[in-house]
Nucleic acid binder design. Sequence first.
DNA 1: TATAAAAAATACTAAATAGTATTATATTAA
DNA 2: TTAATATAATACTATTTAGTATTTTTTATA
Lengths: 150, 150
Amino acid sequence: MLSNASKYAIRAVLFLAEKSEMHQKYSAVEIAEALEIPNHFIAKLLQQLAKNHIISSTKGPNGGFYLNAKNLQLKVCDILNVIEIKKVFEGCFLGLPKCSDVNPCPVHHVVAGFREKILVKFEHQTIQEFADEVKLKGTFISHKGLSPSI
Amino acid sequence: MLSNASKYAIRAVLFLAEKSEMHQKYSAVEIAEALEIPNHFIAKLLQQLAKNHIISSTKGPNGGFYLNAKNLQLKVCDILNVIEIKKVFEGCFLGLPKCSDVNPCPVHHVVAGFREKILVKFEHQTIQEFADEVKLKGTFISHKGLSPSI
DNA sequence: TATAAAAAATACTAAATAGTATTATATTAA
DNA sequence: TTAATATAATACTATTTAGTATTTTTTATA
């Protein structure tokens, strides 16, 4: 459903959001290591996000990527609009050109419920709120260091 | 989430299921036209399904593809196991390697509900039952002939 | 002001998915 | 037994996504 690029980008932004209180910056390499994702790939994605003002960056020594107050008020959808070409959550699960409540495909109603939920989250919840929720609930944006047996 | 190949294959099998009472056979070309999908592409998929005994076929004049009683008792998952290389509904929505109820990603619980529903349907409902449901509910496996404005 | 650290830009290669074209084989029926 | 029809098999091309490598630019600081 999401491309690897989008998955990496969302996790990277959540990583930066979690760290944003400390006002520290993180290099692409540090982020790649923390999330166990390809170094050069995430660097390119972060650059795209920075260019589109979804995240912030400064060059040079002690530079890196970070989120400012404005960035923290953006939504996951703002990330996806930069990374993903096509609208991810549009498009019928079975590929019908005009699938809708009126002309539903055989799984339309099963999918529609999920789509609604995830769309509300990604369109309305701010990155700040999302990151707070991650902290509160103790969910994971990386499995680094997790016991290999689990 | 599903590849085009899987989408086409599921719709083609539902098409054949709907027609199975008439004991008529349908050529790849006829199926392609009815579902408005690429001719050669669906032909190749139908051949794969036939080779794996998911659907039935006979060559020659008046030949074509059809479903026998045994085929009608199969599940959508049986189709996917032939067409799709990787398990479609495994794998974390955000790409975490060990996402689970124990180590959930930030959207795990939103996704898990949907995944459960669609998986139950695709694993347990027979093609026959699925096709009956399509007929009963009047859902669409093609939008061919639908007014272009809708 | 030279150096090093970091993003930014550019240009690739590789792999997976999507789709097309051609030829061979089987079967029916005239 | 020949012609027509349809699947089966094989071999492609094109596009998208994923990932890598290299060079340029900016900037802090020694």
